[in-house]
Design a protein around this nucleic acid. Sequence first.
DNA 1: CCCATGTGAGACATTCATGTCTCATTAAAG
DNA 2: CTTTAATGAGACATGAATGTCTCACATGGG
Lengths: 197, 197
Amino acid sequence: MSHMGYRCLMAVDRAHVLRSAAALLTRKSTATMDEVAKAAGISRATLHRHFAGRDALVRALEALGIEECEAALDAARLDEGPARDAVHRLVREIEPAAALLAFLYTENQLFEGESQNPGWTRIDDRIAAVFRRGQATGEFRIDLTPAWLTEALYGLLASGAWAVAEGRVARNDFHYMIVELLLGGALRYHTEPREES
Amino acid sequence: MSHMGYRCLMAVDRAHVLRSAAALLTRKSTATMDEVAKAAGISRATLHRHFAGRDALVRALEALGIEECEAALDAARLDEGPARDAVHRLVREIEPAAALLAFLYTENQLFEGESQNPGWTRIDDRIAAVFRRGQATGEFRIDLTPAWLTEALYGLLASGAWAVAEGRVARNDFHYMIVELLLGGALRYHTEPREES
DNA sequence: CCCATGTGAGACATTCATGTCTCATTAAAG
DNA sequence: CTTTAATGAGACATGAATGTCTCACATGGG
């Protein structure tokens, strides 16, 4: 709990501020800088000293999200073992960041015209690679593209985070619900060939 | 192209305005009233004459979303035939409204404290009922709750709508991708019992 | 003890979306 | 043609969030 970052004094815990901001903005994406500051237990002035403005704050949250995602990807060792187990580990590792991801996922629309952080591309590629590997080994169906499976994973993570936040799904079921639904659809072989309605 | 609604003149097509607003707000949820007006091809003044304010506009979009959802639910005849076919029809019917749904789904967080439109509860119940029926008939797994399957459907619809909007998924694949992933996970029987990682 | 640094509180100007208003124009109905 | 109604363009005030500033206070280091 000492020697934080730069040099010396009881500086505001930047990570804690970002945590609070993520938690608040996930529920209320239009929250004021003042509300964000209050949620973090600091004053608006101090918040402004650490993040030049709302945009900078969101960018910092994006950087945090990317950082946590990549850490989760590393920890999940996506290259090892069966692809389905890799997906299990991925969801397990990424779960703590799900709420933040849900916020960034919907906020990304703001970056439409502007430059998109290349970190997301890297993450997308790494996740898509798992699904592609699973397809190559025959574990996963080949009629659902890796890009769509990646997108669907994001969507399910966001849905799960919101459902948990609103009490519609128990927090303990988060991992199971997401992985079971995603893998059940991604895994090959089905009871019967599905006909078009 | 005549005798619109109330009485007489070339009144702005309210439905068209809502369409444009939905399309724009889906991509840029923070769009200005002025941008919404421009997108609809009308002036801000006229937009204001039809919708008292931004809040009223969002409420109208919500009402439209609910209306289209319930129409889709009716058209899908969820009570008839196998539950999996009912889900097929549901996604097929609800697809045109997916973008609007995606917007409302993320915007709903704004209504946190306030009163939630009871229409959503009705819709949630009707969709959950399909999954519950499928579970009762043995078509669907029972370890994924109807509430979660409903939530997941919303998430996949939103993901699909965004993925299509950004060109990551072909529009023609929308229905297939969503239904296959959702049903593949919701359908009972799997190749092998899944073990916990 | 004194100094330096980070913080909280509040004042202040600025920007921007919003909401309201007026007025001229256009189009349909009589 | 005349009347009525709806629209488009623009001016204007309002309110909210933002960004910047100053000053007092607290805490830790020397």
